[in-house]
Write a protein that binds this DNA or RNA. Structure first.
Lengths: 358, 358
DNA sequence: TTGTAGGCGTTATCAC
DNA sequence: GTGATAACGCCTACAA
């Protein structure tokens, strides 16, 4: 029997070619291809492909035998080939812009990413981590060069203008609304930081506090500015002074330092921190200074992360649905990829969680 | 809509095809291909490819014109096609096994990942996040199915046996040595947790403490067990009782709770926590209980993360080079991918950082 | 319902 | 030095 093209092909692509792993006697065995599966099941590649992709119109017994072959061979589709043919990559990039990279350790981010990952499980999408260097042309090109189907920007988000532009070529969903104008491109999942912060501060007012300080977050991030504004709003409404402001950077350390500075200044009986990590740091400083919480100073945080539960006293805080944000971001991106329309801005609800510190 | 084959074909590769983004009048323009670049530069795809890949043997003026074309068109290589042709993906998976997923928010992990990402910047490798579901066949298959060139397992690492097996088909580097036997496959970057913990505890002994408790980490993780063992070692050597053990799970909350339990028991004058987050939580509990640190109770943590600096008093801790671990993991993986030999186990140094809490 | 064949964008092996 | 051309593994009209 004369060799069919396919056979020649096989021969040419025998294991061991090119790869130089040395000491594995069996040789770096090449993963089975659809071709292999098809041969084993006694069908054509096309049919095997149909089974793999769960298309109908395939006879049940054929499905069975192909699946058996897949099982026996441990066949896994080659994504590269699939991407090439389908002209979509099944890759979603998770971008942590440089401006936010040092915040990567923030549990809020981790939780958002987990939410997105969880939502994507079950789909065949894969998450691609892009850390830092937002200005750099390299990553922008990577993102726009058809290497990813969509982009998730997990960031409390500042301008990141260059990223917003990405929206032109690839669907993109941000965590957090940008302060700047973003035109028609880009989608955003956010909470109303300003109103949410106000809720927390108002709670302090209702508890009878009148000298309310704040430990603000980084002011180059929208979340930082908005929460500060929310604090301001309430104090203004109440006719209180809003002069006690220290700016941190969302890290626990900065919370401690900010509180130490506050303690050096005029008296106050409450503090609103822009996130729980800073609140925790602040409580640490208060404890050392011999101020009781909430006796001398009531504390309210933001996020409702594990630190608000770890502190003693436990911290009253504004709950932010981080996990859900990630999930919604992923869901919206999937919708966009499916060609559906999605609201450009989605605001998720927050709620006050009252604990011991207030 | 009857159309001649040729026409349909054309249409198929015309812009705007298939994708139904509605309001962009210019249509989703397809990224330029090498073909385009080549045409524009007046050379063949082969030559264009040579330029893109910086191969020599190309006339300088040709290089120039091709680069010009690339620049003008904003050409970016299609990774899928490249992967297919080169038979390598340029993708490195970062796996957070299910057993460790809830620890994702731990700054230690984030820092390790950042270290790896930083090391990979400049290379054309891309990081693929694989969260959870280590048992699930799906991710294992994904990892072994030729979709990634290598795997980084960022975990304090338990058995994760299934993952160790991966080493058979794909190079894999773990953060943390497994407790179990791992044969010849798999590479590990670690610190000597037991000895490092001992350093911290010994410091407490030298400070004159004799009733030293510990807040251990999760005992299903090697790091948790080893640090507990290190604590035990020192107490045994010193002839002290080692009965004061509370087990946490590395979260700040668990540190708080553990300390509260310790405070309910026999007296003690020092505590060694298996990480800084738990130490921070513990200090919070101590503060509320009216115990002074280090006066009544000296505290030593582990990691040297931002929390050890945020606490008041600041926390004496065992520094672990998290960022470097990530970088070394990446470096080793790259070496393996290049076919080089790499030590199967690499132990990075730790050091005691003395601060106020001891 | 199933098979045939062409194409997805690059790389790599040859000749020239 | 440069250009055809055959893979790479899979998808998908179209034909059968």
């Amino acid at each position: 029997m004369a060799k069919k093209p396919s056979e020649q092909q096989r021969e040419r692509s025998r294991p061991r070619k090119g790869v130089d792993v040395l000491d594995d006697p069996s040789g770096p065995t090449r993963p089975p291809t659809l071709e292999t599966v098809a041969a084993r099941a006694g069908v054509s590649r096309a049919t095997a492909s149909r089974v793999v992709n769960h298309l109908d119109r395939v006879a049940p017994h054929v499905v069975a035998s192909v699946n058996a072959a897949i099982e026996e061979l441990g066949y896994v589709p080659n994504q590269a080939a699939r991407s090439l043919a389908r002209r979509r990559t099944a890759v979603i990039a998770v971008v942590i812009p440089e401006s936010t990279e040092r915040l990567f350790a923030d549990p809020f981010f981790a939780t958002v990413v987990q939410g997105a990952a969880a939502h994507l499980r079950g789909t065949d999408y894969t998450l691609n981590l892009v850390l830092g260097s937002d200005q750099e042309d390299k990553s922008r090109r990577y993102l726009t060069g058809g290497n990813v189907d969509g982009v998730l920007v997990v960031s409390q988000h500042e301008g990141d203008l260059p990223l917003t532009r990405l929206g032109l070529s690839v669907p993109i969903v941000f965590a957090g609304r940008p302060a700047v104008d973003f035109g028609e491109h880009g989608h955003f999942v956010d909470v109303d930081n300003r109103a949410a912060a106000a809720t927390g501060v108002r709670h302090l007012v209702e508890r009878g506090r009148s000298r309310i300080a704040t430990i603000a977050g980084a002011q180059d991030l929208a979340a930082g500015r908005d929460r500060l504004a929310g604090w301001q709003d309430v104090l203004t409404d109440a006719g209180f002074d809003s002069d006690l402001v220290e700016v941190g950077d969302f890290t626990p350390e900065s919370g401690t330092v900010a509180m130490e500075r506050l303690l050096d200044g005029p008296e106050f009986d409450a503090v609103f921190a822009a996130n729980d990590q800073m609140a925790f740091g602040a409580i640490s400083a208060l404890a050392r200074a011999g101020r009781s919480v909430p006796g001398d100073v009531a504390v309210v945080g933001f996020d409702d992360d594990q630190f608000s539960r770890a502190a003693r006293p436990t911290i009253t805080t504004v709950h932010q649905p981080a996990r859900e944000m990630g999930a919604v971001m992923a869901a919206h991106l999937l919708a966009l990829l499916a060609g559906e329309r999605v609201d450009q801005v989605t605001v998720l609800p927050t709620r006050l969680v009252v604990r011991e510190s207030s």
